[in-house]
Design a protein around this nucleic acid. Structure first.
Length: 639
RNA sequence: GCCGGCGUAGCUCAGUGGCAGAGCAGCUGUUUUGUAAACAGCAGGUCACGAGUUCAACCCUCGUUGCCGGCUCCA
């Protein structure tokens, strides 16, 4: 059901060069579905500025890189090399693995080629001619076969019209390509690109096909632009939740516990608790009820629901007890539907019923897919299943939308877009055209009725229905798939979920799957990076540190102030160490504690505290009660 | 799971086929301090784990485990 909980980071790198928000492409390169959207040297569909100079620079640099690689490895097979959001890549089949030294070598060869001022020469050829030119290039021959058959470069369906086959040649290197390119290599800034990394990549993105070596590079119109980009990468590293998680003491991983199984410290758990409490409170306010359905389920339930067939490989191995086989719960929908059934006959008057649950689920993700808190094997969804009649879909969708808007706004993620994920032609999707049709129509009309604009993407649906996924933009302009609303006409029927209608006949309810933050773990990762660890007061695990100037003279007063605040539910510590005040301030500052409350002789005498914020601002002495009032207002406002 | 890289003290990192190193953190002592690091001393490591090669392995080889960059996947 819910995809977003484990979705990889999906930063929107397309806006890197745009503006204000430092763009930020840590995880981005290549994965913006490059293989789907950008075909071999062809312009990506739906992008407007593809013919601009930067696009040509990147595209041309890719060809130059391929030439450099061929110089070093004359036997190299070359695959594809498109521009991507922050640069370009090229895939190669090479006799050995590339090393960092190779990258340096390739880079300097590229500069030499660039300085040669070689023209990019275009020519159109027949398929037969192309096969001669690329006679020793198996991957190119496969591409040519596809082009000759009228397919797009990814082997997609024939479009009926003849495809023009063309090549571009610079210096000694000729590549199958549609262009466009710069006029000559000298137009590629020799100091505006940098080879970044080598990675494995499957030919045509298919894990059953050969794995190639992909060289990723970033390229810009100038040295300054390159440096700006590299600086942004550094900024992203500074905010990395894995780094901050350790520095701020929020969570750890242990080889003894296992990969992808995070351990949360008291501080980390306090953040979890605050996040989940908030969503629980908001959900209750929006009419949702909370249920609890445990961690183990008999495997037979997943046979019935269809999850077993689709996701068997990513469930943890079974626990066998005599005739019973149990599984750690990898999703909630079957459990919630079972609960619905066990609660007895339901009248249409009871609908909609909205079962929400903070459920820790276990998914045996591929070891290579694990990444910090964004992709884990134990995750806690803020899941919900709404059982309703077809007539109620629209209203329930609106209700979900309101909740999502409220929560995202609270977390200062109000800039988001919606992706409508539809069924593709092939794959895992349940084959029931009529139900898909109805579910998709219902979702579209709900989106339209709410004035939500969206972009439809095929092939991204859940196996049981279409999804509206919310991609929220963080402070660095990266996009994260967090919230989701999914319409399911299929599972309730499979599990025999029914209600008695007005006509006193049995009917199958529609199931709306919905999550707001996605999963606690992933959302926490996003929040850590969004706030760079400087959480708003209501979320901060430690809201204030009291710093006695002299631990001998001022501890008593400090402890009294702490006790007063703690009694009101505030999370305040006293730094009793014998460090000097400056050291204590530095410590609190680096822990990103919102308020430092300094107490010395003057404050103790006046019943006040000297307030310093983590932004370095000195608010001066404030009466203890005044500070408490102010802080509590800030907490209540979640600002 | 696949390709590549990596794992030295709690953290950040040096290091060599022949005795294991620094800074910070920690502990102890002195200092009792006014808005981002007082001073000194001490302690801290089966060099991820297991096997192999070698007179000798943190270093070379293989396996395992975990992490990182990608690919694939993501209910």
């Amino acid at each position: 059901m819910r995809g977003m909980t484990t979705s990889p980071v999906n930063p929107d790198t397309s806006r890197v060069d745009s503006d204000t928000s430092p763009g930020f492409c840590k995880n981005a390169r290549g994965r913006i579905d490059t293989d789907k959207q950008v075909s071999v040297c062809e312009e990506p569909k739906g992008m407007s500025a593809v013919h601009d100079q930067l696009y040509k620079i990147r595209h041309s640099a890719a060809h130059v890189m391929a030439q450099a690689v061929r110089e070093i490895f004359p036997a190299a097979s070359i695959a594809i090399g498109p521009p991507i959001d922050d640069g370009f890549y090229y895939d190669f089949d090479l006799p050995r693995a590339l090393t960092p030294d190779d990258l340096a070598d390739i880079e300097s060869r590229m500069r030499r080629i660039i300085n040669g001022k070689h023209a990019f020469v275009y020519r159109e050829v027949t398929a037969a001619e192309a096969r001669v030119i690329f006679a020793d290039q198996a991957y190119k021959l496969e591409l040519i076969d596809g082009l000759a058959a009228g397919q797009d470069e990814n082997g997609g369906a024939a479009n009926g019209s003849a495809v023009v086959i063309s090549t571009y040649k610079q210096d000694t290197f000729e590549d199958l390509c549609r262009g466009p390119h710069v006029a000559n290599t000298k137009e590629i800034p020799a100091d505006g690109f940098k080879l970044m990394s080598v990675a494995g990549a499957y030919w045509r993105g298919d894990e059953k096909r050969p794995q190639l070596q992909r060289i990723y590079a970033t390229a810009w119109e100038s040295k300054a632009a390159l440096e700006h980009y590299l600086f942004q990468l550094e900024e992203a590293k500074r905010r990395d939740h894995r780094k901050l998680g350790r520095e701020l003491g929020l969570f750890y991983f242990s080889e003894d516990v296992g990969a992808g199984l995070p351990l949360f410290t008291p501080k980390g758990e306090m953040i979890r608790y605050q996040m989940e409490s908030y969503v629980r409170e908001a959900q209750t306010r929006h009419g949702y009820q909370h249920v609890w359905t445990g961690h183990l389920v008999k495997e037979t339930l997943y046979h019935k629901s269809g999850h077993y067939d689709n996701y068997r490989d990513s469930m943890f191995p079974p626990m066998v007890d005599g005739d019973s086989i149990f599984r750690l719960k990898p999703m909630n929908c079957p459990s919630h539907m079972t609960l619905f059934k066990e609660m007895g006959r339901h009248s249409y008057r009871e609908l909609p019923m909205r079962f929400a649950e903070f459920a820790t689920l276990y998914r045996y993700e591929d070891s290579g897919a694990l990444s910090g808190l964004t992709r884990v094997r134990s995750l806690t969804q803020d899941d919900c299943h709404v059982f309703c009649t077809p007539d109620q879909i629209q209203e329930e969708f609106s209700r979900c939308l309101k909740l999502i808007k409220e929560v995202l706004t609270t977390y200062t993620l109000s800039d988001y877009r919606v992706r409508l994920s539809l069924r593709g032609n092939e794959g895992k999707f349940v084959n029931d055209d009529d139900k898909w049709e109805r579910a998709t129509a219902a979702l579209k009309s709900a989106l339209d009725a709410n004035g939500v604009s969206y972009e439809a993407v095929e092939g991204e649906a859940a196996f049981y229905g279409p999804k509206a996924d919310f991609l929220a933009k963080d402070v660095l302009g990266r996009e994260w798939q967090l919230s989701t609303i999914q319409i399911d006409f299929i599972q309730p029927a499979r599990l025999g979920v029914e209600y008695v209608g007005e006509d006193s006949q049995m009917h199958t309810p529609v199931l709306i799957h919905r999550a707001v933050t996605g999963s606690t773990e992933r959302f926490m990762a996003v929040m850590i990076e969004h706030f760079a660890g400087a959480f708003p007061l209501w979320l901060a695990p430690i809201q204030a540190v009291i710093i006695p100037i002299s631990d001998e003279k001022h501890s008593e007063f400090a402890l009294a102030v702490q006790a007063k605040m703690a009694a009101l539910g505030m999370r305040v510590e006293v730094n009793m160490g014998r460090d000097r005040m400056q050291a204590k301030i530095r410590d609190a500052q680096m822990q990103k504690v919102p308020y430092m409350l300094i107490v010395g002789d003057r404050e103790a005498a006046a019943g006040a505290i000297a307030v310093r914020t983590r932004t370095g601002e000195d608010l001066g002495a404030i009466a203890v009660d005044d500070f408490i009032a102010r802080a509590q207002a800030e907490i209540a406002a979640k600002s």
